[in-house]
Design a binder for these strands. Structure first.
Lengths: 339, 339
DNA sequence: TTGTACGCGTTATCAT
DNA sequence: ATGATAACGCGTACAA
């Protein structure tokens, strides 16, 4: 096992001082051609690479980004993560991922862990529990320490920092308007229990579109399911008992499940009933029928978040201005709606 | 902005030496009750937390694990990653993820980057290009430096290290046997171009099962598609032209696509034609009909990989014995096969 | 009981 | 042209 070589080793071997070696490797003008060549040759031979940790300690810069997300086995977050990783990688940053698992405590612990020097800044989406508790002290602490923070998707107004979201309300509004223009009258909304701000925004858009188009709001057409919804009972009954001709679902899985219920009931998609989902992931593309879906452009979102963060990290002055980037979403039309 | 506080700050403020502070915070017997209380109170007040980087430098241990995977937007890898993250987190380790994007160069660069002190060990699945080139010098370098390495799923025999795989060959063998027992005679294999060792293993199992059950091997029933297969042409023609009563696909997406072709051709699933896929992900569960699939237990795989790695990282002696853990897969039967 | 000195690996500043 | 020294933040063996 050949040990990692350090400046000290080279210095000792070549009988020069450590600082000479350091300078020689940086091609400093101060050092003679001879020495430089000797040192550089030796370094190459033994494949010298400076130790990142030592450099981090010296520079007080780790070139690491901390990413905290509720769940990694979730198409949208995964997509965002890919955008972050890509941008970070191409700018010389590494990414440390922690999964909060929708738990407040884990989120806090992970943040504290990373905040002690391991990273230069955070990118995160809040856990469901955090949004429910409405407790953001851990975020406040971090920003007060001057650690840059970028929130995406699951954000809060309580914290001042850069943010990236999609226009959830607008997207839902457009989707519902589309359904109405296709002649749909009884449009259901399948959403999550209400503490997730994204679901809230989508519901707002749904209601507003109905109102603006002169359709009555019928609360009995709104079904709220637990976030991790496994049981088929509740949604099954809903479809059996209601007369519906279109459905907006706040995620793909709800949509796929509901399409099944509709088919089982003997309805034809999209003739008798149309479906639109959120998160244009793999399920939408491969569902049968293929699902019309609101694409959230997660990868782009990740890139923007990473860019915002790295900008803040690398800016010298303490920049106290924050912006919220709102990404436009796109409705991808497929077989589950009439064109 | 309140700056992160260090031992030095506390020492200066309390007019004691740095080492006194350090010891006091560790509740050392050497320090008087008085001083300890004073220091600890002050530390708590200002929320002192030791700097991870400094500790890493001192201990030559980062408590970071480097994970390099070909793709993160891929259900199987994501699942494995979750297992790694979970185990790592519960053992006080952080995870740095790099995505090789199936590129040899990126894999090499990322490894070199992390190998210079940023991590205590690697967990990785080889990129397609690396397997194609058959060049593993970057892995060799790392292991020679004494950095522990665990390979999973996409592995190679060229490198001595711990490994975790599933019994791909056996799984395919079982799946095909199952189809045969259900009375299927003309069983197709849809696989990737041949340099991925997992696909190879699955193909072996397929052939062996046919042979052991006295069925002729018909190479024209084997379709090899590019790994990132987008175009529908080739597989479409295949289904139009062949008489097939069952299909084994090496991944979910191939299976879903092929089911569409079959349905389009007017075949009934599973009556006329059965389907079995690999990677029991979200698509299998929600496909219509639901897809019978080989579950690879990615999360368990990740846990085991992390456990193997951390064991090696934390073991004092240079342990030169490596093991290869072979995980049993499970066939999850759903609507696409007869029970 | 407290403090000094050193080392982890690197770089920057200031001598020589 | 080269080297000594200090500093990043921490921990610890040793000295006082």
């Amino acid at each position: 096992m050949k040990q990692k070589i350090t400046l000290k080793h080279i210095a000792r071997e070549l009988e020069v001082s450590i600082s000479t070696v350091s300078k020689a490797l940086k091609n400093s003008e101060e050092i003679s051609r001879d020495t430089k060549e000797k040192v550089q040759a030796f370094a190459k031979l033994y494949n010298y690479k400076p130790n990142n940790i030592a450099i981090s300690l010296k520079n007080k810069r780790t070139k690491n980004i901390g990413v905290i997300i509720p769940d990694i086995v979730h198409h949208f977050f995964t997509t965002v993560f890919r955008g972050i990783e890509k941008y970070a990688d191409s700018h010389g940053y590494n990414v440390i991922v922690c999964v909060s698992d929708e738990s407040f405590d884990k989120e806090v612990i992970n943040m504290e862990m990373l905040a002690n020097g391991s990273i230069d800044g955070f990118i995160m989406a809040l856990s469901a529990e955090t949004q429910l508790k409405n407790d953001f002290n851990h975020l406040k602490e971090v920003t007060e320490q001057g650690i840059p923070l970028v929130l995406f998707d699951r954000i809060t107004d309580e914290i001042e920092c850069d943010k990236v979201v999609i226009d959830d309300k607008e997207a839902a509004y457009q989707a519902v308007t589309k359904l109405i223009n296709n002649g749909r009258k009884r449009i259901a909304l399948i959403t999550t229990e209400s503490y997730l701000n994204v679901s809230e925004k989508r519901a707002e858009g749904y209601f507003e579109a109905l109102k603006d188009n002169g359709l009555a709001i019928d609360e009995s057409l709104v079904l709220r399911l637990p976030y991790q919804y496994e049981d088929e009972q509740k949604s099954g009954k809903f479809f059996e008992s209601k007369e519906i001709d279109a459905v907006l679902c706040v995620n793909e899985i709800f949509a796929i499940r509901c399409m099944r219920h509709a088919i089982k009931k003997g309805l034809k998609i999209p003739e008798d009933i149309s479906f639109i989902g959120f998160t244009d992931g793999i399920l939408s593309k491969f569902a049968n029928p293929r699902l019309t879906s609101v694409a959230q452009h997660g990868e782009r979102m990740g890139e923007i978040a990473a860019q915002m963060l790295i900008e803040k990290v690398e800016s010298e002055e303490e920049n106290e201005t924050y912006r919220t980037e709102i990404l436009k979403s796109t409705l991808i039309e497929r077989e589950s709606t009439i064109n």
